[in-house]
Structures are given as C-alpha cells and as structure tokens.
Write a protein that binds this DNA or RNA. Structure first.
Lengths: 352, 352
DNA sequence: CCGGATGATGTGTGCGCACACACATTGTCA
DNA sequence: TGACAATGTGTGTGCGCACACATCATCCGG
C-alpha cells in the first residue's frame, strides 16, 4: 500500500466541505462557521495533514527576501569568508523565489551598524541574518525585529538575551579552555611553575561578550591544572609603540610558556616573536598571515571559527524556516576546530 | 524592471512554435523538424533559459529513489553514525518526492557486499550511495552501475579508478601525516632517536587502500623529521593472545614514543596500556570507548572522520544532482578534524 | 415586500512543467 | 483515388496550493 499524501482536497472531502473552507481554517483567514471549522479541525487532527511546501511556493509566486547584516571589510579575510558563505547559500536557495539583500556596516563603527540595521527595518524583509558585533547596539535592534515579528538568526557573536530563532557560532567559554589545553600540551613535565598570557587585540572587550567568555574558559583550565599563573593583556592599537613594549615585557618573563590571542590577530604577535624568544602561540582563524606563521611554526595552533559555514548555515536555517516552516535549533554550536600544519590543507580545500 | 524568469511558454512564443515543440527540443524526445529545432535552439541560446526545477518535480509526481549501500553493524558506532547521517538527509529531502532505500551488508563479509549490490542493481534506483569497503568487489560493481547509467556517490573509502559523480571522504595520506604530527608534538627536544609504531587492527590491509595510504603518510612525516624510526604491526584478531604479546613487546621498546592506530580500534591499545607504560596514542573516530580513554588521557588525540556528515553530504550531493541537475565535486574531501579533551564536547553536540 | 448589506461557502484560475493525446499534413501503395 | 501509415505539431490536463471571485442564504430597513 503506497501511503498516499493527503491533500487539502482530501481533507475537504472527508469533512464534507469545500477546499476553500479548509483553506480558510488552515490559514485562519476569512470567516467560517463554528460547525464547519470544527469538522475540518477534527479531520485535520486524525489525518495529520502535511502541506506540500513545494506547491505552496509555486502557486503564489511570492518572493522571500532575506536581509544580511554583516560587516563589510574587504581587507579582513574573516569577513570575506563570511560573505562567501552567504553566496553559497544564495546559490543553494535560488530555486525557491528567495533573494538575499546585503546590508553592510563597518567594523569598529557601531554607529554604522545601527544605521544599516535601521535600513533593514525599513526594507521589511521576510528574515534577517545578522552578526551582532556590538552588544548594546544589537540589543536595541533586536527589540525592533521582535516587535515587527521579523524572524532573525544571529551568527558569530551571541546575544545571550535573545538570539532570535537561532544562534550559530561557537561556545566561547569552551574555546578558551581549548586554547589553554593546546598551549599546555607543550608543557614539559616537572618544570617549575609556568605562566601563560591571554591577549585581546584590537577589539573593545566590554562590548564583546565572547572575549570575556574566552578568557573565563582560559583561566578556568589553568586553575584546574594548578601551578600556573595567567596574565591578561588588552591592546587596542597594534601599530603603536605601546604594543611592542608590552609584548617585549611579556616575552621577557622567563616563566612565560605560551600566549593565547583571543582574536584573529595572532600574526601580530608571531611577527614580533621572531626576533625574540619563541613561546607557544595559539590564535584564531585561517587568515593568510596566520597561515604563514603556522606553516613556519611560530603559531602552534589555530582555532577555526569557520565563518563561511556559519554564514551559509545561517541562511539555510532561515530559509528552511521560511520556506519549509522548519523549526530551528536555538543554539547551533559549531565544533571547535583545531588547525595544525598537517591538517591545514584539508581545511583550505573544503571550507575555505 | 523585475527581470522576469523566462518559461517554456516564452521560448515557444519567441520561436513561433508551440510549447510542445519546445518541450520536445529541450528533452530530445519525439520528432521535430529541422526548421523548428533550429528556431527553438537559437532562441534558447540568447535567452539562457533556466528551467524551474520545483515545478518540474511537482507535475509528473515521479518518485526519485536513492539506494544506500552501507554496512549494517549495530555494534559498530561508526556505521551507526553513518546511518544517522542518511536519516538526516532523508528528512531534508522528504519534500521532494525522494525516498531512500537501504541495502545493507555485513562488515568483514565481502560476499554480502556483492550480494547487496546486486539487489541494488535489480531495484534500478535513480541513484546510489555506497561505501565501497572491499576494493576488488566494489570495482566489479561499479562497472555495472556505469553500464546501467546509474549515478553513484562513494563515501568513506575511495576507489581511485572510478568514484562515480563524487567521492566524499578524507585524504588518507594526509591523515597519516597528521597522526604523525600529533604524536610528534610530545617529542621532547634533544632526546635520543625515538621510534613510533603504526598499528592496523582488524582490517584486511591489502583490500583497503586507505590504510596503505595512511601508513605512507605516517612514514613520510617521520622521514622528514629524521632521527626516528617507524615500525608497522598488523593485527587481525584482537581477542587472541598474539595481540597481547605483540603489544607488550612493542611497549617494551624503550625508544617507543607513540602509537598510531590506523582504524577506529585505538581503545583496544589504550586498554592494554593501562597496566603497562604510557606512550602517546592517536586513533580514529568518536566511539564511546575511544572517548572514555580520551577523557582519561590514555588516548591523546582522535581524528574524526565524521561519518554522519559524510553520509548526509553524500545523499545531498546525489539529490542535488537528480533534482536540480547540479554537478558534483568529483572529490569532496572533508577536513581532518582533530579531537582533544577540550573540544570533544563541541563535536558531540553538533555533528554526532 | 423588495433591494442591499453581510456572512458562509463553493468554484475557478494560475503557478511552470511533463506528458498524453488529438490533430494536421504529407507520402505511399493498392 | 481512397485508405492508411508516418511524421510533425498543437492542445489539454494534472500536480497541490493560494487567492480572487461567484454564489447563496439570511436578515434588516425603508
């Protein structure tokens, strides 16, 4: 027996009404008598009607518009990879009448974020994908989306208060722990108490929760390990002399065994380490400068945040929600991928 | 101007023929006059007609059947994860009239593979996903598929001679190199020449190319590193006394610094290492027994082959090919994922 | 008592394509 | 020349749904 799919027509016949009435009940539009409504509903319950989403999109020929609110940074490879992910997804969903409208803002410019977000609001898209880099500003925007009942997905940075239908990214706390473990790997047994450093480079810590979380994880690991100390260094301007001095001072510590850079700027540290002492170094993201130092051995490990897959997955989630009414995972946490010299190539080939 | 999508109807009008004729030209079915054909083709060329695949599948109500030829091993977590991946994909593609028909064979039984494969052939599916574990047998089957013009995708194990429309898996050679690197990490500087072992457990090496490739990569790495030696051990029966003896002998080597298990059976080694000396240990796959030892620190790293994603990706590739006529990557090589204690959880949450 | 407003429901059309079928035209041979 | 194939071409229908529109009964005020 081929289990036939039940259509609106079937429901109508079984309830003894017309398909028009079923349609009205299903979509709660128009008016229907109490009697007809209950008849349809009872049939609906026992038959488990599953609408054919393909046919749905075909008929009305409606267009779904997804707005993407991500940084535009031609010089930042991380966000370039993100944009590639958006393109991937746009390709995949082109068959359904689904278009992606990019709204861009500048890194390090929270006002431009807010401005772009308001442009999104005005466009009234069917869904939004956003990278809420600025926490306080994002919180305000999110409220608007909620009011307008526009479903949205957040990637990269979590807004704990409200992530929309889904947050796609990584567990920052665990990421910090992982970084610590990777540094600790090189720890020689039976050595005197060692110290490790965590560096926040080029980002406003107070407005970026994930950095705080990373540090918390990093410190927790070493607390458990014992006999080690952790120092924190925050640097806004890499070009200034202050950075060089701080770093030199750090490297001057004889007990220093490793450095964890919480952002994607590990190459800045590797660059200065060349002339000085070599300590273990862990950072983030497959930027070409980072890769160079990884290959040279100055960076020991990189943790891959996979922006490309985050972005495409974000659009996928949103599209599935809009087209197929598929509920999304509230938190879609990506694996914390460890990159070394020998598995690097396998990542470049596939994701990047 | 909203760039309208051009339909068959449009082509017909512009070519001055009926949609029936356009249909015949497009699908090369029925007979058409030279004149009509060329008229349609010329319009087709300049208009870049893109068929609406959604509507295509809607009308005829045709069903697409994908056969999956993978091991059935209720006690083997690796293949259980694979089956989950198949289910994932089946869910995703349920909207299109696409069904997955499982054909199962037994691990360690090449005859059952051939038998199941012939059952697939008889069923004449629209596409096949297979894990060609037995190289010689698979080669024979592949020829049949090719003759019957049934598109197929291979996962997990590569048949270099012919992979169908796509092979999805990992680069085994590089995987061996990575394993070597991970073992070498623990190498203390300035120690006397060390030796490393590679163990093939429970598989017929000669009929499994990927194991040979892994060993080749493993050896190449240490050759480059210098001052190290590599020993190979092949073990078919883990329960026998021979295994225990060989392993004890291995662990007796004072120069031994690490062991690489080329299959998913690293836990067998870890288990015997408890009473003996601890050396570095690298293996494959997130089996619960392996995870236990990873957490305990007896296994240092696991390389994740991501069977679940391989399987779902395989069906995706096939479905995209069948439904959307989307060409597939010939070799879709997955990243070589390094699992440690601290990133393990992030993998369990997402992929597994 | 009839026209118009209103509520409840049924009917029809189109989305883009595949495919079956009907029809027109020509050629062929008894 | 009429019967009949062979060949080319056009028309019609259905897929499942959304949505506009048509229909019908009821009720109310003038």
């Amino acid at each position: 027996m081929p289990e036939k799919t039940i259509r609106i027509k079937d429901i109508a016949r079984m309830a003894g009404v017309s398909i028009g009435t079923v349609d009205r009940v299903l979509h709660k539009r128009g008016k229907t008598s109490q009697e007809a409504t209950s008849k349809v509903l009872s049939v609906l319950q026992k038959m488990e009607y599953k609408p054919n989403f393909i046919a749905r999109n075909l008929g009305s020929n409606r267009e779904l518009r997804i707005a993407t609110l991500v940084p535009h940074a031609p010089s930042d490879e991380y966000w370039i990879q993100c944009e590639k992910g958006l393109q991937d997804a746009a390709n995949d969903w082109g068959h359904f009448n689904l278009t992606i409208e990019p709204y861009l803002f500048e890194l390090d410019n929270s006002a431009s974020f807010t401005k772009a977000a308001h442009a999104v609001l005005k466009a009234k898209p069917d869904g939004v994908l956003m990278a809420p880099l600025f926490h306080t500003e994002a919180l305000a925007i999110v409220k608007f989306f909620t009011d307008e009942a526009i479903p949205f997905v957040t990637i990269n940075t979590e807004i704990t208060e409200c992530n929309g239908i889904s947050f796609i990214g990584q567990n920052a706390f665990q990421s910090g722990r992982l970084a610590a473990e990777l540094l600790y790997l090189r720890n020689l047994p039976g050595e005197e108490p060692a110290s490790y450093a965590i560096l926040h480079i080029n980002e406003d810590i107070d407005n970026a929760i994930h950095l705080i979380e990373k540090e918390r994880g990093f410190r927790e690991f070493f607390k458990e390990a014992g006999k080690t100390s952790v120092v924190t260094l925050s640097i806004i301007d890499v070009t200034g002399a202050e950075f060089a001095e701080s770093l030199d001072e750090l490297l001057g510590m004889r007990s220093l065994r490793g450095i964890f850079v919480s952002t994607s700027k590990a190459f800045e540290v590797a660059n200065r380490m060349i002339d000085k002492r070599k300590v273990s170094l862990v950072g983030y993201d497959l930027l070409s400068k980072n890769l160079d130092y990884l290959k040279k051995g100055l960076i020991d490990f990189l943790i891959h945040q996979n922006p490309r897959r985050q972005a495409s997955q974000g659009v996928n989630t949103l599209s599935n929600y809009l087209v197929f009414r598929k509920e999304a995972k509230q938190r879609d946490l990506f694996p914390l991928e460890v990159i070394t010299r020998e598995n690097l190539q396998s990542y470049l080939g596939s994701d990047l």
